[in-house]
Computed example of a mutant assay.
Amino acid sequence: MPRPVFGIQVVTIRISDNTRQMPMLPIPAFVALVLGYLALRSFLSGRRPLLVAFLAACAVQSGLVTLVGGYGLDVLRPILPVSATLIPPLAWITFQDALVRRLSPRAMAFHGAAPAFTLFCRVFAPETTDVVVPLVFAGYGIAILAQLRGTSDMPLARLEAERVPAVIWQVLGWALIVSAISDVLIAIAFATGHAGWAGWMITASSSLVLLFVGMLSGSPSAAGAEGPERDAAPDAAAPPRETQQEDVEIVARLEAFLRREPLHLDPNLTLARLARRLHLPEKRLSTAVNRATGNNVSRYINSWRIRHACTLIDAGASVTEAMLDSGFNTKSNFNRAFLRETGMAPSQWRVRAREDAKVTPIAQVGTPP
């Protein structure tokens, strides 16, 4: 297989008949450094081990591409397809762990079949790896998209973020599919004798896609709630017949619970935790809130948070204080929810609250005791 065109690029600069050569960092090496930094930062900040492992795998893969394509270490070339097929299963496991459900070690080990089968093909039928690798990437990408399509609420996602985690992982699912398509195009380029095209496609697919996937998965919104799920209680069985009246009763229970215990002010609140506290299945609570209020659970909880934030701002709190004390960690999420609920930005609400506070004492002048 011809060596890809990326590697130590050399820029020739002619100055007064003297020629200098300037080595430049290969694109995959730069990507490996960025992904390694993201993995280290996630590890030091106490993020979930699976997310750290996923970012580290992306960094290692980009590093291997650098060593093979940029520095000519062809002895490592057989490892590339096997190490590449570690990434889609890790993406799926990280997605499940962050937003859907905790996987048992046995369930995680099952997904080791993808790189194991790729290794088998690489040893006994090397020509089949050009088919196996794209199928692994496409299969896991489609699985992520199918999971997101089947539900409006992610049980383990922070309710503060609303649909942002789902959108991020939707993009990541498509990124895996795009990588599979690029692998097919690379194989076609080599088969048709256009190795030069293949080199640039390898640079784009193995580097830019990895960088894109790593940076998105490193987003706080993609990682779900931090820390273990608390307040665990066995889920109750869903009622055999779900009626509109039952939905209203469930929402009334939820409202009474939030008035009694303001759990909505916890920024790490998830659908799973809320359902456990109400002794309801996650799907049942989500369905009841959706049908009774017209909103999903994330928007419903955030409406409670915004009402609390408005009260704090009216009492003289700053916008940042109101945001943090109302269960929001991200300013963009807070601003978006505030605008949707009130029709104005938090800063505008604060200005109006100050103006109202100035008018009120004047109106009270001359009022009998």
Rank of each mutant, 00 (worst) to 15 (best):
297 V>A: 13
282 E>A: 13
285 L>I: 14
266 D>K: 00
298 S>H: 15
273 R>L: 03
266 D>E: 10
298 S>K: 10
271 L>Q: 15
277 R>I: 02
270 T>W: 12
270 T>G: 05
295 N>C: 05
283 K>L: 05
273 R>C: 10
281 P>Q: 11
276 R>H: 11
291 R>T: 13
280 L>A: 06
270 T>V: 02
271 L>A: 12
276 R>Q: 07
289 V>W: 06
293 T>Q: 03
274 L>Q: 06
264 H>G: 06
270 T>Q: 01
279 H>E: 11
279 H>S: 10
288 A>H: 10
281 P>F: 04
276 R>T: 07
279 H>V: 00
282 E>Q: 07
290 N>H: 12
267 P>H: 02
293 T>F: 01
281 P>I: 01
274 L>D: 09
280 L>D: 04
272 A>S: 13
280 L>R: 15
268 N>F: 15
296 N>R: 13
291 R>I: 02
268 N>H: 09
266 D>V: 07
287 T>D: 04
299 R>D: 10
296 N>K: 08
288 A>S: 12
298 S>F: 02
271 L>Y: 10
278 L>K: 15
264 H>Y: 12
287 T>R: 14
270 T>N: 08
281 P>A: 03
284 R>W: 11
298 S>P: 15
266 D>Y: 00
273 R>N: 11
276 R>Y: 03
292 A>F: 01
291 R>P: 08
290 N>D: 02
272 A>D: 13
286 S>I: 12
272 A>E: 15
291 R>E: 07
297 V>G: 05
299 R>N: 14
288 A>P: 12
288 A>V: 02
285 L>G: 09
275 A>D: 04
283 K>N: 01
277 R>P: 05
284 R>L: 04
298 S>W: 11
296 N>T: 15
277 R>D: 03
266 D>N: 12
278 L>Q: 13
264 H>T: 06
267 P>S: 00
290 N>I: 06
295 N>G: 01
298 S>Q: 15
272 A>Y: 09
294 G>V: 05
287 T>Y: 06
268 N>R: 02
264 H>P: 07
267 P>L: 08
280 L>M: 14
291 R>D: 11
280 L>W: 09
284 R>S: 07
268 N>I: 04
269 L>I: 03
299 R>G: 14
267 P>Q: 09
270 T>M: 06
288 A>Y: 10
286 S>F: 03
278 L>E: 12
285 L>D: 15
290 N>V: 10
288 A>T: 06
276 R>W: 05
265 L>P: 00
283 K>E: 03
275 A>Q: 04
266 D>H: 05
265 L>D: 05
268 N>K: 12
281 P>C: 02
275 A>N: 12
296 N>I: 11
294 G>Y: 08
277 R>Q: 12
293 T>S: 02
273 R>K: 12
291 R>F: 14
269 L>R: 06
273 R>T: 03
278 L>P: 09
271 L>G: 09
280 L>I: 13
295 N>W: 10
276 R>K: 12
264 H>V: 08
288 A>W: 11
298 S>L: 07
280 L>V: 09
282 E>K: 06
266 D>Q: 08
